[in-house]
Design a binder for these strands. Structure first.
Lengths: 216, 216
DNA sequence: AAAATAATTATACGCTTGAATAATTACTGG
DNA sequence: CCAGTAATTATTCAAGCGTATAATTATTTT
């Protein structure tokens, strides 16, 4: 006759709970794909009951968008704040930017799963599309600024149109290699993608980006 | 009292029906994403009732895999059989390969939606992962063969290890640009991506890939 | 033209989904 | 330490999900 006891819980701050729910969402999608991201699965992962999601987010779609935003910020920051990206000559920082983009933890199957799942949604969802557009530009603009600075530094300043093309091309090769490294991890030796990426951006821009002694 | 009349139908060959169901699956995913690809939605698009799907495919997952295989074959063939890829010097064919990869109909939001949706599934599904792995290699091997031939043709033969790196890098830049063109169509002018891609592969390989007069 | 066959439709089943609402309980300010 | 409040749990709901099976009908065979 006795119903099971109501589960104990702690009251958390709104921002803490939101962060937890976002983190749980990202874990579920990265491990099992977008189709697995149901409110019940996410709530279970966050160790709360499903009703709480709607208490903090107006809909599941709203939570997904917040998770997308969070993930892209996290990924961008992981590159922008990596070692060698924040100090040194412009060429050093550009090299560090490319290396960081093509090394763990940025190259990671889970992050590719997140990226592909969100992109698939963004292609038919206006809100998510805006997030995609914004984060794409943010990353590419950072890359373009570094390339511009490195070219100026070596007395090879380039006009805006050429800078744009170099940034698009460099961003393309970084994105492509990142994707392949995350989607087929066993395909590439340790450091191989980073080396290929660095050589590629060097060939595209004409810059000498010999990498520093990271290996050994 | 009279129940609605049973709907008329035509008996089709097995291969025709399978193709129709696969085509319907691809349409639904490309327009509305993987989450929209339910048996009912797919059957409606194919103008049959949902039971027929299980008559031709052992499960929905099986249909998805068949659609994945079909789409990747379609995309690969669209590049491999494009004008300028099947005749001319090796450099001409390599240039045609890059141009075709970065022009319509290959660059297309719907195809990016398909690709991202399937990849998202492939990252946690062994069967789909095999398809991804196989089609990735198929595309990259074609590219590597063209690069090898073009380098031989210009008396600059390259050792296997370098060929591998050039193919990975070229494939990377093509993939990255293709993705960005499909995901943000309004971002790039007509022919811009193809031009950047061609210049990039030229810079990476050191080959002269001046494109022929396609424009004007 | 009738009988056999299999392609297709129709219906039903149990489960999951996102969302809404009601019931509790942990915390806060007096 | 007690009353108020809102964070959290529990429950409910209608709709949609993939799958299974039974009924029907278009086509082929004889």
């Amino acid at each position: 006759m006795s119903s099971p006891p109501r589960r104990k819980f702690r009251r958390e701050t709104a921002s803490q709970r939101k962060d937890d729910l976002i983190a749980a969402t990202l874990q579920v999608i990265s491990e099992s794909g977008v189709r697995a991201a149901t409110v019940r699965t996410i709530a279970e992962r966050a160790e709360v009951t499903q009703g709480l999601i709607r208490h903090y987010f107006s809909s599941k779609e709203d939570l997904i968008a917040a998770a997308y935003e969070h993930h892209m910020t996290q990924m961008t920051d992981a590159v922008a704040t990596a070692k060698d990206v924040t100090a040194g000559t412009a060429r050093d920082r550009l090299a560090g930017f490319v290396m960081a983009s093509l090394s763990p933890p940025v190259v990671n199957p889970g992050w590719v799963a997140l990226w592909s799942g969100f992109l698939n949604e963004a292609l038919h969802d206006a809100d998510l599309n805006k997030i995609h557009q914004r984060t794409y530009h943010h990353f590419r603009d950072q890359l373009e600024a570094l390339i511009a600075e490195a070219l100026r530094e070596t007395d090879q300043p380039a006009p805006p149109e050429r800078l744009r093309q170099l940034a698009i091309a460099s961003n393309g090769v970084i994105d492509g290699l990142w994707l392949e490294g995350g989607a087929l991890p066993q395909e590439f030796a340790t450091g191989e993608l980073a080396k290929i990426g660095l050589d590629s951006v060097a060939a595209l821009t004409g810059l000498d980006l010999h990498r520093k002694a990271i290996d050994t």
